[in-house]
Write a protein that binds this DNA or RNA. Structure first.
Lengths: 341, 341
DNA sequence: GGTTTACGCGCGAGCGCTTTCGCGCTTCCT
DNA sequence: AGGAAGCGCGAAAGCGCTCGCGCGTAAACC
């Protein structure tokens, strides 16, 4: 390891360690020629700043903890990428982990992060039962922001979008296409509120348009391809099968489309499918998927901004950012004929 | 932040800080009742270990730096997931970053990691021009392992597979299907050796089977859907268009399939397409993609093991693990008739 | 019973950086 | 010319944890 310390640099440059530190972090506080001497000393001895020592001394670290639910879905990777980019630009590193929708894993991750005294923690939603500990974190002065949802709790910061509204909108779209038997394949809503809100949006739309609600047509699954496929197969096997299915994530939708294909049926001829997320591949599937575009990238960048902001000012009052989603109409849904059912 | 320190715990438990530290890290060195007193003290004062201080004192950190090329491809996320899981099991955190195939970004990431004195660094291949600095890292005592490729350099550790051989094998398969005009859509081989080896495997197979080599049928692109689509469109526009196309990553292949669809042509009726990576969705595309399965998950876990091993023993001698790949035959390639071309 | 062995624990000197305080010097103002 | 203000820098006291060393007590041996 590069074992040269600031001490040695300071000797080499004929200044005190304090000055070296200043030259590094507040260059404007040291005269140009001294600064140059220091820079030269650092270069010629391959000095590498020790952020661990710095963080300890400064009593806060330049890391940000990030928890995403899964890497199986590209859409979270997009937020993660944005977070990492934004962090790097500010010379922060990120610690990442995925909860895999498991409360214990999530808690373990949070504890692990805590040990590093990060500048803040970004959570992608959070699991039921976690709310209290997050609030405790905040009360203890740890900047936290929840992404990917619009939270009702005024004490929690979020950077997200309205899952209820967005889901309501797609459902409404499906209804406008004259569909009346609409299935729903959805992620673990019993574990994650963010997902539950999608369910609620769906239900609300059904209700508002006077459509019956068939509990059997709502299938809760993990957001994976295989689960989407299985769920769809089950839906298609029902005596009165749905004419349209909303998959609450594109990954599920992709799986669902595969199930239809396996039955030698077509989308949207035999059944319409809509997704949620607008992952890259949604535009490239066969048929291209009608879905809800979600500002994954912007969410990531903004979340970092919020964290950094809180860390800098020490003002942990909750900040709320509700971004827009949009319905992307492609080719996986069709309008039923008047007489069709 | 939880601001209680080991000091305070030690007072509360009536022992010295050293003992608290031992109770935490080497419980067998402290008597059971003392240990329990300490544990109780920690619980009732919400003690959170300060890993920053610990790392500084111990002069090595419990973090691992990871660089992947991009999060646009799910296949790297899989390795990342495996790395994170394995790390967490050993109480290590990971710092992640993506190079986006840019040398400067990659270097910046490495420098940023260095500042934290990580236990080691995992690189997904590396860019041209980076080799020297990696070797320097190793010489300075930093465990490094390159994943996703089999390296020729005996001084560099790797956990990967034989890109040459794997690509040779798919190409051979295409040839066995009587294809003679085979196009190649490939990632940035001029920047990344790992990708170049795929190119070389392809070329070697062509040569060994006496097939002509059309440079224009080899298109270098970023491994994204849109690039795959564009490249395929170009290939299909050629006067003597290929009867089969190998896409050196599944993402490219998905894009390529979309291009074919846009021309109202079919895969594999009008053109066969093979991919590389076997990302989850490859099995769910329409048609399901013939591709090369790559042990992304195992690579990740093994890489962590290697790093931890090196960090523990201090033995930085290069370790090599070449894992197996396999050809997954699905439905995107068809055999040409005798008279077909 | 005296010596050895082992065990459990405290002491104290760091790890490499940050930051407050204040000193001496230059510059500016009246 | 004398005082105020400001600039550039050094001294030193930490930040919270680790670990080699060594002491005292208890168990083990002949």
């Amino acid at each position: 390891m590069a074992k040269v310390t600031m001490q040695e640099i300071s000797k080499l440059a004929g200044v005190s360690p304090a000055t070296v530190s200043r030259a590094l972090h507040s260059p404007h506080l040291v005269r140009k020629d001294t600064r140059e001497r220091i820079t030269r000393a650092m270069e010629k001895s391959d000095y590498v700043y020790n952020a661990t020592a710095g963080d300890l001394s400064r009593k806060r670290s330049s890391m940000i903890g990030v928890i995403i639910p899964t890497t199986k879905s590209l859409v979270f990777s997009t937020s993660l990428l944005a977070i990492q980019e934004a962090a790097q630009e500010n010379n922060f590193s990120i610690m990442a982990g995925s909860s895999k929708y498991d409360l214990e894993t999530e808690s373990a991750l949070i504890s692990q992060f805590q040990e590093r005294r990060p500048a803040g923690i970004i959570l992608t939603g959070f699991l039921k039962g976690q709310q209290a500990s997050i609030k405790r974190l905040i009360r203890n002065g740890m900047p936290c922001v929840v992404i990917w949802d619009k939270l009702a709790d005024p004490d929690l910061s979020y950077v997200g979008f309205d899952n209820f509204k967005a889901t309501y909108a797609v459902t409404e779209y499906l209804i406008s296409l004259r569909h009346r038997r609409i299935g729903l394949i959805i992620g673990p809503y019993s574990k994650v509120d963010r997902v539950r809100r999608r369910l609620e949006g769906f239900l609300a739309a059904l209700k508002d348009y006077g459509l019956p609600h068939h509990p059997r047509m709502i299938i809760e699954k993990e957001p994976t391809l295989i689960d989407g496929k299985e769920a769809m197969a089950r839906l298609m096997d029902m005596p009165e099968r749905p004419s349209a299915v909303l998959a609450a994530s594109d990954t599920l939708a992709m799986g669902a489309m595969a199930a239809v294909r396996d039955m030698d049926l077509g989308v949207p001829e035999n059944v319409s499918i809509a997704g949620f997320d607008d992952i890259d591949i949604a535009a490239y599937s066969n048929p291209p998927l009608t879905t809800v575009r979600v500002p994954a990238y912007e969410i990531g960048r903004l979340a970092v901004k919020v964290i950094l902001d809180m860390a800098k000012t020490g003002d942990l009052r909750a900040q709320h950012y509700c971004l827009d989603t949009s319905l992307i109409i492609r080719k996986s849904c069709r309008k039923l004929q008047k007489n069709e059912t």
